[in-house]
Design a protein around this nucleic acid. Structure first.
Lengths: 172, 172
DNA sequence: TTGAGATTGAGACTGATTCTCAATTTCGAT
DNA sequence: ATCGAAATTGAGAATCAGTCTCAATCTCAA
């Protein structure tokens, strides 16, 4: 069952030939340190654990998933701290929040990534990312026609991925 | 402050020259009656009030707004009934649920309406609808490239509407 | 008119997230 | 290294939209 555009092992592969997509977790940690200094925040052990855990994952991670992984490393870290830390990462531009099929916020690493949109399988919940500048251009044109200046957008395509098209179980 | 593509008075205007956009509320009531019969549901006074209230509005109505207007007509109708009724309208294809900037579900009348997407002003929350078949076609093409069969999509453009571009108050 | 079954309103409940607050930790100034 | 103001923490309470439960009520075909 496909779970993400980026297969797990690619994280290791990336070190070999520099990827334009995903900066290494260490870069994220540096950027966070700069942000923390700039904003008068403080570096804490908990934040380190959460940030390391987050950047060692790929794909779109729910807070709950992240919390589980974080607590596997340090059982004393609470949910509130994970929520708070992900908000800081988002403000710092290192993560971005997404809302797909369910009510949960999912985060993806955002450092040095292009804007992209998502294809979501309604059956297995695989999430595939894509970029299409012609769509973007048309969006801008439409907005201009209506006098809008667009600052962000959300484009999500829901359907069945290749694997799920042949299966008959009802989509969730 | 613009609130919707469809200005309030247009509802009356539509009767003169038949609009392809919005069927009259009476047609919706008939369709609902058919749906209720088909599904073995029952017609109730509460549902009539809610459906009449809903279809006498235009634009994108939150459950809370709708509840207020419903209770102005009958203070005894509870929130749960409004939630339940809007779900029925949605199942019957007479309303469709949308999720924009905040966590609230908003409903719009769906009877005989084309699919369309939305431009949303982040400052005044005006919602403008648009259709663009070239964007739709490109979406399908992208999905096909990734082996997906798309069943629905969500495209929302967020930014500042013409009126709000000249104002300096911070966007909400 | 009757009764099975649908519907209702109120309030309890849920799940995600935020808030509160006392205890703890950080870090620049000493 | 120590101090202390200010930030952070975890736990649990609070919030918020929405759903569920259940006893009382209503609908409608027979």
């Amino acid at each position: 069952m496909p779970r993400s555009t980026v297969p797990p092992e690619s994280k290791r592969t990336r070190a070999a030939h520099p990827s334009p997509e995903l900066a290494p977790a260490s870069a994220a940690r540096e950027r966070l340190a700069a942000w923390i200094a700039e904003k008068g925040l403080k570096a804490t052990r908990q934040r380190d654990v959460i940030v390391d855990t987050f950047f060692s994952q790929t794909g779109h991670l729910s807070v709950d998933d992240l919390l589980n992984k974080v607590q596997a490393r340090d059982a004393n870290i609470g949910a509130a701290t994970v929520y708070r830390t992900m908000k800081i990462l988002t403000d710092a531009g290192l993560a971005s929040a997404r809302h797909f099929f369910d009510g949960q916020t999912r985060y993806e690493a955002a450092l040095d990534r292009h804007h992209h949109d998502h294809l979501i399988c309604t059956r297995c919940h695989a999430i595939v990312e894509f970029e299409n500048e012609r769509i973007e251009a048309l969006q801008d044109a439409v907005a201009r026609q209506h006098g809008f200046v667009v600052t962000r957008h959300k484009l999500e395509l829901y359907g069945l991925c290749r694997a799920c098209q042949t299966l008959q179980n009802p989509p969730r």
